[in-house]
Design a protein around this nucleic acid. Structure first.
Length: 931
RNA sequence: GCCGGGAUGGCGGAAUGGUAGACGCGAUGGUCUCAAAAACCAUUGUCCGCAAGGGCGUGCGGGUUCGAGUCCCGCUCUCGGCACCA
């Protein structure tokens, strides 16, 4: 953009000049360890007083990146710049700031690349990390590099595996509401029989329906499967299969995971998503007697029990076979039979068609279908015999897999009842103009069984929904017919994957196939070399295929002889690996004590950086910035592990992330030609609102930045064209952090012009001499300065970098216009500029004669005397419309101001001969006249 | 369908219920220059008007208020999440 500097301006702040300054300061920061944050104890402790190691602290985190081979584009660093600005600001406010960046380095892309090239994923991953470190270093991030790590580092993996064993070796004590060591359960139960004990573990193996993805050759967690049953990564079909897999008992924490959302400062949408995902609903379990024994149902509307006119079981429900009658009752409605000669045939047929339906089909066609089992059950509140159906609108995986159907007050039951012509009884009074089904509030009707039960009975009639619920639950509990309960949508976390590039489990099996934890001394269990990195993958639609993990193909690793306490014996290693999410579920802890080899983090260090600041608080990272796409997955898993470690007494904080902000995305325009092919966005020209590529018109689209859309802009491009500081200022001034916005390379120059103006306030572009002097600034300048200090300080504190920068620009423009040279003013400006544009600020600070980095200089403080003006512009409104302005002293009285306002010529003219009915005075800024 | 965001100039965006459009980009005009670039200065919501000034204007329709982008009610569009969860 910028040509060679003209002869006469050798010290002009050009991109090239900026680049020299920036790399020089990056080298110096690194050499001096400028951003190293001391710990209270251990290897990273220090007595360097400038770091305030025992005073206030601030722990900042970014969602760490997966080191992709594609490198960064300008959208990636948005959050990193923002946290860096916060960190630099907090340091100048006196905080000890912990800010570092690790790498989430296990993952599918590296494995896929390895399969394609035969290169070890570690090799390529480490290369990618090195490249990313280079790109990010050039951005001037104030990270403590001693605290950086990658999840694949054996030292990190060791603790990931250690935490797994902690979870494996604990159980959830529902009475105490916390996890406890399994040894305490063994004592309490008086047995160490694995058949008993293993069922309680928080990490356990179960044979249960899991999401099998043949196209990826691995199973997936529920959270990794999209609504239309495809893999979030790769978009392959996913099938439910019964397989033996590791699970984590996250469901034990469902209540705390919901309730503790109130103790963190997170965006509402993220909290909502977590609440919905956990899906807690309060209701009742009620038993309906049948020929096959009691059938348990779950309902959130026990108040509508009197309106339950039939029951529905999921087709896979275990009692269905027992309920299937030999023959249809006389005069059975033919819509109930599915056209079959008897219930057993009807059920078999229905199950077959239901199973054959893909989930997509189920979704497209929500028409209710089902068949009658031929049996009846008894509604416990009124003794009525209600027919029992099976239907696929009832899911085995939720509640009890059986429902009582209340067609009068449930949409789905109503549809089914209409379809099969079932009885509909209203039991909640609906508003007059509403038709059934009525699902809203109302007074109970037709809900009285005192004529059957006499004094033992209950009447809900006249009660509101909530009262009726409590009344009927009390009645059911008293008679042993049911009880109030809570169910959750959340399922346990499927924790094993059939991949190579993940953490191995620290588990071996003995000859009885029993899972045994390896002792801590044998950690980490490292990945063996394998002949082939890929799991066996299958045709994406091959639902019957079986998982085959790559590690199973290394018999010399799988078969081991170990001495686990009772002499050397043969064992077989677990061949699954942990999911991607393992490392990111606890990495916040490792930043606090990254070099500790004895514990995952020293309790003193953890307490200092993460502990609650006041009793009752949950603690956690002071600020965590990342994309909203992790709202459920990563953030839920990390909270879960954090709570387990808290329960077991390893850490003092109950939540990992106290405050969370979702940064927006930087998106970009992309252009397609008449064939629909993407053309390079940076070669498109705009004329009169139309876009042209090589003279031909093209269409504009808006979307993610990326190679495929040919609209990527890389940080490296920006470093070359403008320098890192300009890129930082531009990204921060584009808008609020949380908001997504379009990239506009043309607009970047505005940020460069701003930095150039600041530069010229200090340095003569031709001679390179410092031009500041010690002159006393005039009052107008002092006002501008202190107003800026006041506003910038507040904006920075609230992460409003865009408006903070606007205020710095205003101050700079004032100083430029008035040719202000006063050192005191310019130094304050340089200090305030430092968080967003640290290199140029350091350079100017140094040229102003300061020996040390400005990193730990005190942030300027506004002098209140310059924040009040003596003369202010008062606005005069008539009927709320501005009709005039008067310059008045700030301390003017209401009476004087009113007089002045009414005397203002235009005001007087507008009022004319109308009567002034009321005057509202907000001295000294506003007078509002009502006529 | 349910839940949660959002809508302001040509563009990105500012505005404790009190002068809508800060700051930046772009555009137009000017200074400097042989010329250009850069820099600097000025103008820039829209309509009427020579001007003074006035009308209109924050997705749409109502309301509260002396005064509403901001608060309340009802919609539209849009983005995100969930989706037969009993």
């Amino acid at each position: 953009m910028e040509g060679a500097a003209p002869e006469g301006a050798a010290h002009r702040y050009t991109s090239e000049y900026a680049g020299r300054i920036e790399t020089a300061w990056q080298d110096r920061w690194e050499a001096e360890g400028t951003f190293e944050a001391p710990n209270p104890v251990g290897e990273l402790a220090t007595d360097d007083p400038r770091h305030n190691a025992h005073g206030s602290k601030y722990f900042l985190m970014d969602m760490f990146p997966y080191p992709s081979g594609a490198g960064l584009h300008v959208g990636h660093p948005l959050g990193y710049i923002a946290t860096d600005v916060v960190g630099r600001f907090r340091r100048m406010q006196g905080d000890n700031v912990l800010h570092a960046l690790g790498y989430d380095a296990f993952g599918l892309p590296a494995e896929i690349y390895a399969v394609q090239t035969g290169r070890h994923p570690r090799e390529t991953t480490l290369e990618n990390i090195a490249n990313m470190r280079r790109q990010l270093r050039r951005l001037g991030l104030a990270h403590d590099n001693r605290r950086s790590f990658a999840t694949i580092d054996p030292e990190f993996m060791r603790w990931t595996q250690w935490i797994f064993l902690q979870i494996f070796n604990s159980w959830y004590d529902a009475d105490q509401g916390k996890a406890r060591p399994i040894a305490e359960l063994i004592d309490e139960l008086g047995t160490d029989d694995p058949a008993v004990i293993d069922q309680y573990r928080l990490a356990y193996i179960s044979e249960s329906p899991v999401n099998w993805c043949p196209g990826l050759g691995t199973v997936l967690a529920n959270e990794e499967v999209t609504a239309d049953n495809r893999s979030e990564r790769g978009n392959f079909p996913v099938f439910k299969r019964n397989l033996r897999q590791w699970q984590m008992r996250i469901t034990a924490y469902a209540d705390r995971l919901i309730d503790d959302l109130e103790r963190v400062d997170w965006p509402t949408p993220v909290k909502m998503m977590q609440r919905n995902w956990i899906g807690r609903s309060h209701g009742a379990q009620v038993r309906f007697e049948s020929a096959a024994g009691p059938v348990e149902v779950f309902t959130t509307r026990p108040d509508t029990l009197f309106g339950a006119t039939y029951m529905v079981l999921a087709p896979e429900h275990p009692l269905v076979d027992d309920l299937a009658a030999e023959t249809w009752p006389d005069a059975v409605d033919e819509r109930w039979t599915g056209g079959a000669p008897d219930p057993i045939t009807a059920i078999a047929q229905y199950r077959r068609t239901a199973a054959a339906k893909t989930d997509v089909e189920r979704q497209e066609n929500k028409e209710k279908t089902g068949v009658f089992t031929g049996s009846f059950a008894t509604n416990p509140v009124n003794g009525e015999a209600v027919p029992v159906f099976i239907a696929d609108y009832v899911l085995m995986g939720y509640g009890t897999g059986a429902i009582m159907a209340v067609p009068g007050h449930d949409e789905r039951d109503f549809e089914f009842a209409t379809e099969l012509s079932l009885r509909i009884v209203p039991v909640v009074q609906s508003p007059e103009d509403e038709v059934l089904p009525w699902t809203g509030d109302g007074v109970a009707i037709n809900s009285d069984n005192t004529d059957t039960f006499g004094d033992e009975g209950v009447s809900l009639d006249g009660l509101g929904v909530d009262e009726a619920k409590s009344a009927i639950i009390a009645w059911l509990e008293q008679r042993g017919l049911g009880e109030g309960t809570t169910t959750y949508r959340l399922r346990d976390w499927l924790f094993s994957r059939q991949r190579y590039w993940g953490e191995p489990f620290p588990i071996v099996y003995d000859e009885d196939g029993r899972a045994i934890a390896l002792p801590d001394s044998m950690l980490p269990v490292e990945l063996p070399e394998v002949p082939d990195y890929s799991p066996k993958t299958f045709e994406p639609d091959d639902a019957t295929s079986m998982p085959e993990p790559p590690l199973a193909r290394v018999p010399e690793w799988v078969e081991v002889e170990l001495d686990l306490g009772d002499g050397p014996k043969r064992y077989r290693r677990e061949t699954n690996t942990m999911p991607n999410w393992a490392g990111s579920s606890w990495y916040e802890l490792r930043y606090t004590d990254p070099t500790n080899t004895d514990v995952l983090t020293d309790p003193q260090n953890e307490r200092y950086w993460l502990g609650p600041k006041a009793p009752g608080e949950a603690g956690g990272v002071d600020l965590y910035v990342g994309g909203v796409e992790h709202a459920v997955l990563h953030l839920l898993y990390a909270r879960f592990w954090h709570k387990v470690l808290f329960d077991l007494g390893h850490i003092s904080s109950e939540e990992p992330f106290q405050r969370l902000i979702n940064q927006g995305y930087i998106q970009a325009y992309a252009f397609t030609d008449e064939r629909g092919v993407y053309v390079p966005a940076d070669e498109v020209e705009e004329r009169d609102g139309q876009w042209f590529f090589e003279g031909r018109p093209v269409n504009r689209e808006y979307g993610k930045m990326g190679k495929s859309l040919k609209n990527s802009v890389t940080p490296d491009d920006m470093y070359d064209a403008y320098g890192a500081d300009t890129l930082r200022v531009y990204e921060m001034s584009m808008g609020p952090l949380e908001q997504s916005r379009p990239w506009d390379t043309r607009a970047v120059v505005g940020s460069q012009r701003f930095l150039q103006r600041v530069w010229r306030l200090v340095v003569d572009e031709e001679s390179g001499e410092v031009v500041v002097d010690d002159s006393e600034p005039d009052t107008a300048t002092l006002r501008a300065l202190h107003r800026a200090i006041d506003g910038v300080t507040e904006d920075m504190g609230e992460l409003r970098f865009n408006t903070a920068i606007a205020k710095l620009i205003e101050l700079t423009n004032h100083l430029t216009k008035e040719s202000v040279r006063s050192r005191s003013v310019i130094e304050s400006l340089v200090l305030m500029l430092a968080p967003v544009a640290p290199h140029v600020a350091e350079e100017l600070w140094s040229r102003l004669g300061h020996e040390h980095t400005l990193t730990y200089e005190s942030w300027p403080v506004a002098d209140p005397q310059y924040l009040v003006e003596d003369l202010v512009t008062c606005v005069v409104q008539i009927q709320g419309k501005v009709r005039g302005k008067v310059e008045v002293p700030a301390d003017i009285s209401d009476e004087d101001l009113t007089a002045l306002a009414l005397a203002e010529p235009n005001v007087a003219r507008t009022i004319g001969d109308r009567e002034v009915r009321k005057v509202i005075v907000r001295a000294p800024k506003l007078v509002s006249v009502v006529v």
